[in-house]
Design a protein around this nucleic acid. Sequence first.
DNA 1: ATATCGATTATCT
DNA 2: GATAATCGATATG
Length: 218
Amino acid sequence: MKDSVPLRKLDARPVPRSFFNRDPRRVARELLGKLLLRAGKNKTFLAARIVETEAYLGLSDPAAHAFNGVTPRNAVLFGPPGHAYVYFIYGTHFCLNVTCQPLGKPGCVLFRALEPVAGEEIMAVRRGVVLTGPRDLPKLTGGPGRLTQAFGITRQQDNACDLTSPSSGLWIADDGFRPSGIRRTPRIGIRKAKDHRLRYLIANNPFVSGPKRLNPQP
DNA sequence: ATATCGATTATCT
DNA sequence: GATAATCGATATG
């Protein structure tokens, strides 16, 4: 298995803040195929490709944390775009979002699944997974709670960090990859506003989370 | 393959 | 006091 790789070998550019200063639906769709990167020790990093996202629309979206206005927890959503909103849920898991839209408009995109590109061994240790073959890989980053654990993301450490800057240690980059077969379905695991199709995924990608009936084929 | 359930805590009413 | 943008284990077809 590949370990994390030297940072200088990465041929990918940080995604600029202007990318996130848009409607969360557009951001969620166009984030598919981008890379999430985590700086490690000795100029190494973890890398994984974004394969599943969900858009949350802010004040007009009953399922969004921002729906009822600013609170200490969700304050980051009301700040500038391109920053991490990390929250703790079910007593066990963290979820990672990136803020969207201009200051004051609290839209965001939830990261639901990633496909590992580098650093699988480190992710496996963090997840407590024994890798016996390729079929085990989705257990690393296939799901919102799994990917944050694999990347060592916590609210205490990473909430409000700047995802457009490598100096934050957690950032989003573009290596030119453009996915085909993008699909849209209802969001997963929410009780309100279930009718909207705001979940975006790459068809046939084995890292996409959730039941198969919600993973439409091309 | 699909369904149900328990874990465990920050957050808000 | 209730709820939750989840996961993993267990049960059943």
